[in-house]
Computed example of a mutant assay.
Amino acid sequence: MFHLIKRDVILQKKQLMIFLPFILFFIFMDVHPVLTFLVASVFIPFNTYAYDEKAETNILLNSLPYTRKEIIASRYLGAVVYMILSIGLTSAAFISFGKLFSMTDIAIGSGLFLLFAACTFPLFYILKPGYITTAVIIGFIILSAMGPPVVIYLAEQFSGITDFIMNLSIPIVYTGSTVLIMLIYLLSWGLSTAIYQRKVF
């Protein structure tokens, strides 16, 4: 399964050359660190899916000595590995250019990435090739543009829940959020596995 994760990096050597300038652009434009960490985390996993969609790689993968569970596991575990590496490189870039960011920015950015991945990864096994990347890009733009206003609106409408959360201690909020996000990610993993095992190539 490690070789499947490694394959994604090998196939994207050219795209990885764009990664650092792409992230530096966001940093120099003073884009909020949360969005910068989110974009950095999205870069490799979704480039991999876009490549596989064009090349119909699933036919090749199913001819290799890997089970379908292992193929899906490599996607979900690989996404976490790439997220950690991307956040590390982005943090180094922020520090190198004297730009401020916090651990909260990293936590929110990585949490949003895992939620976005959990919602979109199953689509690559549900939608027909040719439509998936477009749907994901549109979804990402909508999330980036509409996410904050929607959260603010819901916070105002459900003030009771907002007050309850605000009264919780920081460790409880972080722990609860982490558990909830990981649960959603694992449910998405299970859903993708179930769909992929029944899919015909």
Rank of each mutant, 00 (worst) to 15 (best):
G109H: 04
I161G: 07
A155K: 15
I126V: 05
I181T: 01
A145R: 10
T57A: 13
L89M: 15
M182N: 01
N58L: 12
L24M: 14
M17I: 13
S102V: 05
A118H: 07
F140P: 02
M103C: 14
N167T: 11
S159W: 05
K69C: 01
L123C: 06
L61F: 09
S192I: 03
D8T: 13
F116N: 06
L89S: 12
T134K: 11
L168E: 05
K99L: 02
V151I: 15
I106W: 10
M1T: 05
F26M: 14
A55E: 15
M182G: 01
L16S: 07
S63I: 07
M146T: 03
G109I: 04
K54I: 13
M83Q: 13
H3S: 12
F22A: 13
A50K: 14
K99D: 00
V200T: 13
L77H: 09
L114T: 01
E56M: 11
A155W: 08
S91D: 01
I195S: 04
R75G: 10
F46K: 03
D30C: 05
T162S: 15
A79E: 04
T57Y: 13
A135H: 01
E70G: 06
P122I: 04
E53G: 03
V173E: 12
T162L: 09
S188F: 00
I87Y: 01
E70D: 07
K6S: 04
P171N: 07
P148V: 12
S169K: 13
G98R: 00
P122F: 11
Q12L: 15
F28T: 14
F2D: 02
P129Q: 10
L64T: 12
H32T: 08
L64F: 14
A194N: 09
F101A: 05
I95H: 10
F94H: 00
Q12F: 08
A107V: 12
V179T: 05
L60Y: 11
S188R: 04
F19Y: 09
V151K: 12
T36G: 03
F164E: 11
F164Y: 11
I84Y: 06
V80M: 12
F101P: 00
G111N: 00
I59T: 03
L85V: 15
M83V: 10
L154K: 06
G190W: 06
F158D: 09
L4Q: 06
L64P: 08
V39W: 08
G78E: 11
T178L: 15
V34N: 04
V9K: 05
I5P: 00
N62P: 03
F121E: 08
F25C: 09
F124L: 04
I106V: 15
A50Q: 09
R198S: 14
G78R: 01
